[in-house]
Structure formats: C-alpha cells, structure tokens
C-alpha cells in the first residue's frame, strides 16, 4: 500500500533529471573548468608547466616570446596552475564540455599578440 501512495506522490512531481543537451545547468561560482591564459599578463616563467601534476601544460620558449600549449585531454582541472601563477595570468573558465573525437583538436595554444 505504501508503495502506491509513494508512486502517486512522485507522479505529481517534475522529473528529477534534466534533459541534458537541451537543458543546461550553469556551473556554480568557483567552478574549476578549463584554464585560460591571458598572454598579456604572462611573463613566461614556466611555473605552470613545471607544477602541473599531469604535464598538461607545455611552455615553448622563455619570457616574452613564450608560447603556451594546453592539452585539455590530460588536464585534471585541479586549478593548481591558476593558484601558482604569480600574475593572475591563468583564469579558470566555466566550460566543461571538452570531449572530442580527435585528440589533436584538444590542444589550446596561447601566443602573445604583438
């Protein structure tokens, strides 16, 4: 009997699940998404690359000429790079849909514009 009452109770409510690709919930404030480099602030010290636990960040060159390559497929989204960066050049964005069929498109490059 209890089960019938329970069933009727839930029949009158909205579904708990969200129809994902059509409905999206915004991630909460402080969500650790994909890191993005602001190359105007980057000084090319290489700390993010050395401190990254999974080796997802590669720095090519030094100082002003440095180029950053970020391999999203290896990224843990731990936010340590952003925390370590002394100049706030790394920000964590809100996007979380990184799955792709091809690994080559999962590399983000950042270059300083001159």
């Amino acid at each position: 009997m209890a089960i019938i009452a329970e069933a009727i109770k839930w029949l009158l409510k909205h579904p708990v699940t969200i129809k994902y690709p059509f409905e999206r919930e915004a991630p909460p404030k402080g969500f650790r998404g994909r890191p993005v480099w602001d190359m105007h602030r980057c000084i090319g010290c290489g700390l993010c690359s050395r401190i990254c636990p999974s080796g997802a960040i590669e720095i090519i060159g030094r100082g002003q000429e440095a180029k950053i390559k970020h391999y999203v497929d290896r990224c843990l989204f731990c936010g340590q790079c952003s925390e370590s960066c002394p100049r706030n050049a790394i920000k964590l964005m809100n996007d979380f849909e990184h799955a792709r069929y091809n690994r080559d498109v999962m590399i983000y490059e950042y270059k300083r514009e001159t």
Binding site: V16, P27, P28, G30, F31, R32, L76, F77, C78, G79, Q80, E83, L92
Partner: peptide, 28 residues
Amino acid sequence: REAVMDILELISGNRVHYAMNTIGGVRR
C-alpha cells in the same frame, strides 16, 4: 546523493575531485 554532490561542487568547484586540501591547510 545528488544533493551532497551539489554541495561539494559548490564548496570545491568539482563534483568528484574536490582538491580542497593542500599541504598546510585547505585551498578554499
């Protein structure tokens, strides 16, 4: 269980790997 997961995401920024602890304290 989603209720707990949502709180954890709210606190730490991730549902599973909270990365809250760091040597010497917590990060957030």
